[in-house]
């Protein structure tokens, strides 16, 4: 999922100064699961803002809505009536949601309530960690199912580097060395011979280096 965290409350309050009718829009997908921008978090932020409005004399009118996904037009369009009444939309979706709501309602100002962080997994309750870099050319079949792009601090394709120490990364003793993990996993799978293959320098144009990315599936177009 896309993992995000709510922005500091003071930053959100500052963004909203000068507006009156505020529509907070939550997203029912990734950010609900990582508990940063779902229906409950919308309720909490709305409640906090209503209290601030009273204590700081802000005169804010707060409206709430949480939709299934902020990255699909058909879920955003039904917000039309609420959007028309709002001066500003505060999206609790990821960066995709913020932008896509403003694409659907171009006349409206859409502000981000979250900081979008990474593609990750739930490690345990309240703990999420990065697992994928979305680089557009997956090599997990070569690395024991552990991604060196997302999990090696240097994104090395042939590791480990000299900074690997007792299974930990030199940047932080709490960070696992991805190449140690890859070695351990390949060893457990009896596939250590895969490490003898040198992975050649890759073409990063499938990643962000190639500019903004887009997929077109002709078979799915209407």
């Amino acid at each position: 999922m896309i993992v995000a965290e709510r922005k500091p409350y003071e930053e959100i309050k500052e963004m909203l100064s000068g507006y009156k009718n505020i529509l907070i829009v939550g997203c029912g997908t990734c950010v609900s699961v990582c508990m940063s921008g779902g229906e409950k978090e919308v309720g909490i932020l709305a409640s906090e803002l209503r209290m601030s409005s009273k204590t700081d004399g802000k005169d804010w009118e707060i409206e709430e809505a949480t939709i299934e996904r902020q990255c699909d037009r058909e879920y955003i369009e039904p917000l039309k009536d609420k959007v028309e009444k709002a001066d500003v939309i505060l999206s609790m979706g990821c960066g995709v949601g913020v932008q896509f709501i403003s694409e659907v309602f171009p006349a409206k100002i859409v502000l981000p309530a979250l900081n979008t962080e990474f593609y990750g997994a739930t490690i345990s309750e309240g703990v999420w960690a990065e697992r994928c870099g979305g680089c557009g050319n997956c090599i997990l079949h070569l690395t024991g199912g552990i991604c060196p792009v997302a999990r090696c601090s240097k994104s090395l394709f042939n590791g480990p580097c000299g900074g690997s120490n007792k299974g930990k990364c030199e940047i932080n003793p709490e960070v696992d060395c991805a190449w140690q993990l890859i070695y351990d996993r390949l060893k457990a799978l009896g596939q250590l011979d895969k490490l003898k293959e040198i992975i050649p320098p890759r073409n990063w144009s499938s990643s962000r280096d190639g500019g903004p990315r887009k997929i077109i599936r002709e078979d799915l177009k209407l």
Partner: peptide, 11 residues
């Protein structure tokens, strides 16, 4: 008891 119940009460 949920955070929302407490916040609404304060509200």
């Amino acid at each position: 008891v949920d955070t929302l119940h407490l916040l609404r009460a304060f509200e």
